[in-house]
């Protein structure tokens, strides 16, 4: 995890100090620190001279701007209708069993968070999921074991 103050300063130099720099700065923080901590949001509020409550209100609006502690790898399983039809629940069962957590939870070692997400535009290849920015399609229980196994081994 990067030092928050430095990171926010760096990001605001890159994206600017205006309100419209907010979302790029948030994304930059999440890339480095996995989520928006209280300290990070306060630092951004100070940097952009926007109220902290307002900053939080914006962050909490967006699904990908996590404001509570999340793991290094965020697994987002699509719950839209076509992925659901193609067997999403079996995939979730496999993931829950492997990670020993439920959807919405994060592993104790802060490596994995298991999340539901709405349509990720892979409806023709469902069930599908994202792990951070990478996508995985036509999932089966076996496939999930291989994919997740790689992550677990290389973490």
């Amino acid at each position: 995890m990067a030092e928050v103050k430095e990171l926010v300063k760096e990001l605001s130099e890159k994206y600017g100090n205006r309100r419209e720099s907010l979302i790029p700065i948030f994304q930059g923080i999440i890339d480095k620190n996995y989520y928006l901590s209280k300290e990070a949001m306060l630092e951004v509020a100070k940097q952009l001279d926007v109220s902290a409550a307002d900053i939080y209100g914006t962050a909490s609006f967006f699904s990908f701007l996590d404001t509570d502690a999340k793991g290094k790898y965020k697994i987002r399983i699509c719950k839209s209708i076509t992925c659901d039809m193609k067997g999403k629940s079996g995939i979730i069962a496999t993931l829950e069993e492997m990670l020993k957590i439920k959807v919405g939870e994060t592993t104790e070692d802060l490596m994995f968070s298991l999340l539901h997400t709405n349509c990720i535009g892979l409806c023709d290849q469902g069930p599908a999921m994202l792990i951070n920015d990478n996508y995985y399609t036509k999932l089966t229980a076996e496939k999930v074991r291989v994919i997740l196994g790689d992550y677990i081994r290389n973490k």
């Binding site: 926007v50 109220s51 409550a53 307002d54 939080y56 209100g57 909490s60 609006f61």
Partner: peptide, 10 residues
């Protein structure tokens, strides 16, 4: 101009 209250979540 205090902005103590905000709209949160969605």
């Amino acid at each position: 101009h205090v902005n103590a209250l905000a709209v949160t979540e969605r």
